[in-house]
Every structure is written in structure tokens, then in C-alpha cells.
Write a protein that binds this DNA or RNA. Structure first.
Lengths: 233, 233
DNA sequence: CCCTCCCTTATTGCATGCAATCAATCTAAA
DNA sequence: TTTAGATTGATTGCATGCAATAAGGGAGGG
């Protein structure tokens, strides 16, 4: 559990404004966790992080509590915070919720999305296809996430956006694996074109089914990559 | 915003164990908020609460962060924590999510509930009918909440249980209003009998539709009670 | 060789102190 | 009278110190 992992982030966060320290640490830590930079099962040492970030333990510990609420870390009394280790079943559980939420969102989005929202999603789709053609997986992945969140947002249900975003973050790392397979990647791009078209034509039920199939197919591939169990460290 | 509200809870929490203080304060505060004892829009004063509870500000502030994540309070820098004020639209948004989640849960529960789980729900249902006959609204309400959560739990999807529980808490206070109308109350009890029957017979789709109708009917009544806008204080 | 107990050290949980910020009141000039 | 500015008190954000606990390691007995 190398201290060297934290070496990189020396001064980069100095001077976070008063009143937002815990928020910023939370976002920072969440990124490290969902990107997999801090691996599942790893204990997060308070002292090392506070020294590297140049903040005190108080806002860091507040961040732990927030991330615990999001299901990203687990805090045991006197044993600190560890990154939660999700089993394939946990991921599948979350994915089932996400699909359910997107189903709700899809029908509402088809009804309520403004032309501007649809246009914004269309632009993201264009950028995503470009990223695909350049074979920039990371870019592609982020734009992809963004599109799905924007479709949800188009439903204009704040609770839905909040829950979806939080649940989505939990399993982001695992869904990334779904794009490793190149054939699947190309297929996903094609599906997105259909999804956009259904949204444009405001075909709610179709949109719902397309999204459902899209996720299931992605997960089928991602699951394979996860069959290799993570190290128990 | 009387300090007297907190008068009651002097010594009752003394001696909360190390390592669980913030958890306990969180639960305690959540109860006060979802029950409406701390009204929406009210600012929560740290000093008063810490003095009454006999704890320091640190675990209390951690509780604020957790509750903010749950959408129950809002923290503004240098202006402390205030109980969020939900509009009828916010409640309806959350309710739509809850209905969606219960739909997922219903079908899974019908497939996966163990006989023990169903039996437990049946016992709760009996107790709920008794509470109805004794006209004990508060008891009834709590058992009712418990039944819905247990149905969800029977789906054996941890993410679902977590999200449902959190989202349910957010709008608990508002759903309470749905039972004020006596005709509706009796109707709700009858619907619960059908719901239990569908679960026993493992009729997933039927269970789903019964729950959906149950919630919609409850909300229709509750909504009336909320048309009277809350004081803007 | 292994197991148990004790001790040391690292780390956590929480209380508290200090500085920054906000809010309310007062003063003075227009 | 009104309003801009200053001032003081209350409250928050964060850093830090101390006590409690856990984790690790060695000594001693089996």
C-alpha cells in the first residue's frame, strides 16, 4: 500500500477555499476511487493524505463520511476508511437499478426534453463518434458517461439525476471494462446512434428498450473481464 | 426557532460509544427531520445541539455532511446546515423514483423472497391491521413503512435496499399526510392485503401493478394536504 | 515450533481553540 | 429620514492535541 501513490499530488491543491475543503477532497477522492487509482480493499491512511493535500484531518474525515454514504468507502470504528470491494453481484445489482432508473428517465426525457437538451446530447454524440474514430478510449468513455447522464437530466427529475449520478459513479470503473472489446465498442457506437434518433423522435418506449439492451450488452462483455477476481490483497 | 425544541433531549444520549457518535447523531437528526420535528427551512444551530446532546461539534458536523448527501439538509459555507424545503414537485419526483424502484423490487421479490421473508411481512401486515383497528396512526405508519422496505429487501438487491431506504426517508414526512383521510386509510389496508396475497403467490407483475396503484392513490390524497404551502419562515 | 500474553507504536475518535466570516447594531453624513 | 460604513458579537471552518483503540512484535511458557 505504497505511500508513493500520493507522491504526485503535492502542491496541486494548496489554497482550496475555506468552506469547500471537504467538498473538494470528496471530489478528489471520488475520482481516485472510481478511476481505480486507489484499488478496492485498500485502506486510506489519513495522515498521508492530509500531508500530501496540505489540509487537516477534519475535512478529510468529513469526506470519508460522504463517500461512505455514496457506498464508495466503508468506515469501521478505529480501523479507518477502506475502499469498498464490489463483487460482480454487487455491480450487477447496481446495474439493475441503473437500468431501471434509465427506463424511467427515458420515457420522461422523450416527453420533456427541450430541443436545446436534445441538441446538446447530439453534439456529445458527434464528439463521442470522433473519439471512437481516433480510438481514444478514455475520451470516449467520459463522453459516453456524459451522454447517459444528460439523457437522465433531460427527464427533469432532480431526484432521478441525483440518484442516477451517485449510483453510476459507484460502478463506473467496472463499466469501463465493457469497452475493451473492440467489436463491442463499435456496436455500442451504433446503438448510441439509434438511441439519439429515438430521443429526437421522442419515442419513449423505444428509447427505453434501446437503453436497456445497450446496458445489458455492455455488461455482458464487462462481466467477462471481471470473472478474473480482483486480488484479495 | 426556539431553543426549547431541544430542551427534551438532555441526558438521553450521554455515553454514546466512541466510534459511533456521528452515526448515532445522524440517525437521531434524521428522525427529527423526517418526522417534521425540525421544520423545513430551519437552520440547525451547532452549539445548541452539541450542548444538548453532550457531544462535540466534530461528530455533529460529520452528521450534517451525511444528511446533506441524503438530501435532507443543505449546507452553505459559513451559513450552516438548514433542513431542505421540498416542493410538491420535489416530492412527486422522489415518489416517481420510489415507484420505479418498487416496480423493480416487486418482480425480483416475487422470484427471490424466501418463505421466511414472506412470513415476516405477513406478520407485519397483521400487526398493521391491528394498529389500524386501534386507530393508532403512528404505529400504523411505521409498520407500513417497514412492510414496504421489507418487500424491497426481499428482492435481495443490496443497492436497491440502500437507495430505496434513503429516498424513502427523504419524503417520509409527506407520505404521512396520505393517511389522514380515513376512507383512504381503510382502502390502503385493503390494498395491503392484496399486495401480500400477490407476494405469497409470487405474482410479480401483479405485485408491481398493485404497489404502483397503491402509491399513486396515497400520493393523490397526500398531495391535497400539501397544497396548503408550508410557511416560508 | 507454536501459542499466548504483554507491551510498544501507529492510528483513529473526538474535543477544543483560533481565525475567518457573517449578522446585527450603531454612528454619522447626506 | 435614509443609508453607507464601522463595529461588535455570534457562528462557522478548520487545525490541532489528547485519550482510546487497534495492529504489530517480542518474551516466555508450553
Amino acid at each position: 500500500m505504497g505511500e508513493d501513490r500520493w507522491q504526485a499530488l503535492s502542491e496541486e491543491v494548496a489554497g482550496w477555499p475555506r468552506g469547500q475543503r471537504s467538498t473538494f477532497v470528496t471530489n478528489f477522492l471520488r475520482d481516485l476511487i472510481v478511476s481505480g487509482e486507489i484499488p478496492p480493499g485498500e485502506r486510506i491512511n489519513e495522515r498521508i493524505l492530509t500531508e500530501r493535500l496540505g489540509i487537516s484531518r477534519t475535512p478529510l474525515r468529513e469526506a470519508f463520511k460522504i463517500l461512505e454514504g455514496e457506498g464508495l468507502v466503508s468506515i469501521r470504528p478505529n480501523a479507518g476508511a477502506t475502499v469498498v470491494r464490489l463483487s460482480p453481484e454487487d455491480v450487477e445489482d447496481s446495474l439493475e437499478i441503473l437500468i431501471g432508473l434509465e427506463s424511467i428517465g427515458a420515457e420522461r426525457a422523450a416527453e420533456r426534453a427541450t430541443p436545446e437538451m436534445i441538441e446538446e446530447i447530439a453534439e456529445l454524440d458527434t464528439r463521442m463518434v470522433e473519439a471512437f474514430e481516433r480510438r481514444e478510449l478514455m475520451d470516449y468513455f467520459h463522453i459516453n458517461q456524459d451522454i447517459h447522464q444528460k439523457i437522465i437530466d433531460a427527464a427533469q427529475n432532480e431526484a432521478l439525476s441525483r440518484v442516477y449520478s451517485s449510483e453510476s459513479a459507484r460502478i463506473r470503473r467496472f463499466r469501463f471494462a465493457g469497452n475493451r472489446d473492440h467489436a463491442r465498442w463499435a456496436q455500442a457506437v451504433a446503438e448510441h446512434a439509434q438511441i439519439l434518433e429515438a430521443l429526437r423522435r421522442r419515442q419513449g418506449p423505444l428509447l427505453r428498450e434501446l437503453l436497456r439492451a445497450h446496458h445489458r450488452a455492455g455488461w455482458k462483455i464487462a462481466r467477462k473481464a471481471l470473472e478474473t477476481p480482483e486480488p484479495t490483497d
